[in-house]
Design a protein around this nucleic acid. Structure first.
Lengths: 343, 343
DNA sequence: TTGTATGCGTTATCAT
DNA sequence: ATGATAACGCATACAA
């Protein structure tokens, strides 16, 4: 059996309350007593029992993280950002991936009662109605990636502006026939990026042609598999809604003997770490992925601290276009589409 | 305030013990009572309070995961494997990355008391002595990636066999002057892969030349930066101790105008998801990364279930060589170096 | 088959 | 400044 607060109290010749006061710096303690208690605690290697403390404190110092998946560098970066910020602020992260089923989300949210202080949720496939229905009312929640149709803390990327900047860049390179490889359109972010693509076209006076819009699913495999279809559209450039698909597409084009960017120009989205290592290096819209995670943690902690007086915020992070080789422009240019942050 | 077991008991007109019995399927309950209780619980949306339950049960259903880092696809895959297995077995994952400092490990291990049932620890940079010193004595631990110099559950990859198979393959391609780009040699896995390289050389009667051994740090950046140095060694092939570095090196070679595999053949290690998407596609030693994670979870659960009667196991997972383009051989071949599993 | 009461390890509320 | 002691919400031994 591990050493408890009672053991420390006995060893120091004081009551448990005093030990608690010393360890938490709560209430007044005579300096000499404090020393004695601290010494005893150190000597016995005492560590407070988390569950017991949580029970009375109503605080677990733990943040629940629910993601749709854990596969690939995007989530890796996201979790990394959250982990750094959480550690800095003295929080633990209870991470869980693979939540496609709304019911499953509800279940896991339920079982997290008494285990977490708040929740960071990324559920891009959930419709607003489902979201509203499945979101717990009695626990603080921060949504990542999608805006809620009701007041709720949110951290997301300016997908529309990012996509628009990417496509505008391609248009400025002289491209007229631009295809787009979108994410699954059940996904809000995928729809926003598609919207940015259309917006850029319209602004340039280029007509939006549905046959140039191909729907993928954000995986490398889908980028590879849809390569043939895209090629059949005979575009001179394609905006790929995320880097994973762009990497898959790049591989297909290589095997098909299509030269990028000469025969087909490409721009991706996200700027995952791997993007600079593809060949040709991927021109892409840089999302601050790890910042998305760290901001979510910070926002959640604020909500927790402010309690019921907290008014939800919608944080929109700006993107910037990183010009590398796949778009056919000079390397090293960075184009910022401007930023929006709403409080 | 959330609904507690008392509320359910009152609503169902029974005692709290009966509610507990129904919800946990412990002890006998009349069918009709069971129905009434279940109905009341459902209606009130009752969920047991995790901390309270943990306090009495001595079980948190949570596994602590301590990793040296969270950057890159390797950790992403590792965590994914753990997450899947943990979910299937009804466990939560408390994940924490970035633990370079041994003292920090000790601290975080301490603060996890009462929060986790066991620990999965990956600390490749820790020397055996430090490991022994900092490992908690009163909590179940599974080590990933490195064998401990004392009895301890372990899941690791057969690095020596994997590296040997890779280098032997290169030798069979006719290469005589083979360089190696190792990981940081403070890292046990890095040393094992280097050993496999040397072993293959010796077996082929090729003398081991220290000047052909270049030490990297397992990052893409280091692969890129050490490219010049490796080129100056004028090898005809290089065994790169992990895929991340191989990808960095590939990029350097491309920029330097060196053709892979014609002018320089390359073999990596790990087979991260990205490896098949590089250009040329990376020949590499496939580590079952996500299985590394899932096995760790399974082993930990076994240790937990068996209690003090548990005898530690050392699980060594086999690798296989995946032949793609970067080594200059025909694509699609798979060479298994044989497997070892010690119980 | 069921209810009452005790304890898990801590913090918080009272006395003193 | 300090020590008893009552919660916190649950599972469980024991009584009924």
């Amino acid at each position: 059996m591990a050493v408890t607060i009672r053991d420390v109290a006995r060893a120091a010749g004081v009551g448990v309350a005093t030990v608690s006061r010393v360890l938490n710096n709560s209430g007044p303690v005579k300096e000499e007593t404090r020393r004695r208690v601290a010494e005893a605690a150190r000597r016995l290697g005492y560590v407070p029992h988390g569950a017991a403390r949580s029970l009375i404190t109503r605080r677990t110092q733990t943040l629940g993280v629910l993601l749709p998946d854990l596969y690939g560098e995007f989530y890796s970066e996201l979790v990394r950002g959250m982990d750094q910020e959480a550690r800095r602020r003295g929080y633990y992260l209870l991470v869980s991936g693979m939540h496609a089923d709304p019911k499953e989300i509800r279940t896991i949210v339920g079982t997290m009662r008494g285990r977490v202080d708040g929740l960071i949720l990324m559920a891009p496939h959930l419709s607003p109605e489902l979201l509203r229905e499945h979101l717990p009312r009695d626990v603080a929640v921060v949504l990542i990636g999608a805006r809620a149709p009701f007041p709720c803390d949110t951290v997301r990327i300016d997908n529309v502006a990012g996509a628009r900047a990417a496509v505008t860049h391609l248009i400025r390179q002289g491209h007229q026939r631009l295809a787009v490889l979108t994410g699954p359109l059940s996904n809000q972010e995928a729809r926003e990026r598609l919207e940015g693509y259309r917006l850029a076209l319209q602004e340039a006076g280029i007509s939006v042609r549905p046959e140039l819009e191909v729907e993928g699913d954000f995986t490398e495999a889908s980028g590879y598999e849809l390569g043939r279809r895209i090629l059949s559209l005979a575009p001179s450039a394609v905006f790929v809604a995320n880097d994973a698909m762009a990497i898959g597409l790049l591989r297909f084009l290589h095997e098909a003997g299509v030269h990028v960017p000469d025969q087909l120009a490409l721009v991706g989205f996200d700027d995952i770490p791997m993007a600079r290592y593809t060949r040709p290096a991927l021109t892409t819209v840089q999302s601050p992925i790890s910042e998305l995670g760290s901001r979510a943690v910070r926002l959640l902690e604020e909500a927790l601290a402010e309690g019921s007086g907290h008014v939800p915020r919608d944080i929109v992070l700006p993107t910037r276009l990183v010009v590398r080789e796949s778009c056919g422009a000079a390397e090293g240019r960075v184009i910022s589409p401007g930023s929006t942050i709403n409080h």
